[in-house]
Every structure is written in structure tokens, then in C-alpha cells.
């Protein structure tokens, strides 16, 4: 039965773990970029829309873990939303394939300003191992402007969370 378990959970320690705060240097650099771009403030919470622009699905597996009990993205005011129209941040994975470049550009256009683009994973950085393929356009920055890069193949959830927190920090400073 579920009820006894829920009751037990009420009395036990939370499973959610602390995550290191955003790296100060990263936060600083982002804050400067924010000022330079004189972008409007986003507020203390960010709505994140994930866009798979051609990934191998490895990056998505780690994004999934973010919303789980261990990392619990939402405690920071970060949430994954269903539409780019509700989003402040596009979290883009994969090398951008020819077959998705247009969809990525359209998703970016559908996201209201001010907006941020986070390129997640080595493929999103510059095409990764798929760089140079005729079927691949390149990294995310080859299609839409990128504000933050989170490296890794795939980046572990703690690193993704640190990156997103850096955005919040930069936002507070900017």
C-alpha cells in the first residue's frame, strides 16, 4: 500500500541532496554578459524548455534525473515547461542536425524575450563527435545565439544544475 509509505516519508529525512552553488567565476562572467546585452531581468525563477536538436538521447537521460527527488530542480525556482512560449531558457542538446535546424530556429523564435540559450553537452558545444558530418549543421551556436555552455558527454545532473544556478546568480547580479 502507498499510504503507510507516504506516512513514513513524512517523518523521514528528505532524499533531496544539496548541490554546490554556482561557480563564482561562471556567475560573474554571465553577469557581465547580461549587462553587456542590457537584457531585462528575468526574476528569481526560470522556466526551462528542453530542445533535443539531434542528441543521442544520453543528455536527455541526465536531464530527466534533474526533476527527480534527488536533484529536485524545482526547489530553486527552476521548472521544465512544455512550450517555448512559456520559457525563459532553452536547454538545447545534441549536434544540430540538418533535419532539426529549422525546428530549433522556430522554437527559438517562439520563445519570448528576454531569453537564454544553454547548450548542453559536448555535441551541443560544437557538434562533438558528429562534427563534420554532412547531416549535421554544427553546434547550437551555429543556429541560435548561445549564452551558456555546459560540457560533458553527457554532463552529470549536478553539473547541469550548477550551470542553471549560475544563470540565476548572474541574473541576480545583472
Amino acid at each position: 500500500m502507498l499510504w503507510p509509505r507516504l506516512a513514513r516519508n513524512l517523518a523521514s529525512r528528505p532524499l533531496t541532496e544539496r548541490v554546490a552553488a554556482a561557480d563564482e567565476a561562471v556567475a560573474q562572467a554571465l553577469a557581465e554578459r547580461l549587462r553587456a546585452a542590457s537584457r531585462a531581468r528575468l526574476g528569481r525563477s526560470l522556466a526551462v524548455r528542453q530542445v533535443d536538436a539531434g542528441s543521442c538521447n544520453g543528455c536527455e537521460l541526465e536531464i530527466h534525473m534533474l526533476s527527480g527527488v534527488v536533484y529536485d530542480l524545482e526547489r530553486y525556482g527552476l521548472s521544465i515547461v512544455a512550450s517555448p512560449r512559456h520559457a525563459d531558457v532553452l536547454l538545447v542538446t545534441g549536434p544540430v542536425t540538418r533535419n532539426l535546424a529549422q525546428a530549433l530556429a522556430a522554437t527559438h523564435a517562439a520563445t519570448p524575450d528576454p531569453k537564454w540559450v544553454v547548450a548542453l553537452g559536448d555535441c551541443a558545444a560544437d557538434g562533438g563527435v558528429f562534427k563534420g558530418s554532412a547531416a549535421v549543421v554544427g553546434g547550437v551556436a551555429d543556429v541560435v545565439p548561445v549564452d551558456l555552455l555546459i560540457p560533458g558527454c553527457p554532463p552529470p545532473p549536478a553539473r547541469i544544475l550548477e550551470g542553471l544556478l549560475a544563470l540565476l546568480e548572474a541574473e541576480a547580479e545583472g
Binding site: 539531434g54 542528441s55 533535419n99 558528429f130 554532412a134 547531416a135
Partner: peptide, 10 residues
């Protein structure tokens, strides 16, 4: 086919 990356030719 959207995530076609040309994996085999690479």
C-alpha cells in the same frame, strides 16, 4: 529521421 547524424558514414 530528425536526429539523423550520418553516424554510419562517420
Amino acid at each position: 529521421g530528425f536526429t539523423h547524424k550520418g553516424t554510419l558514414s562517420l
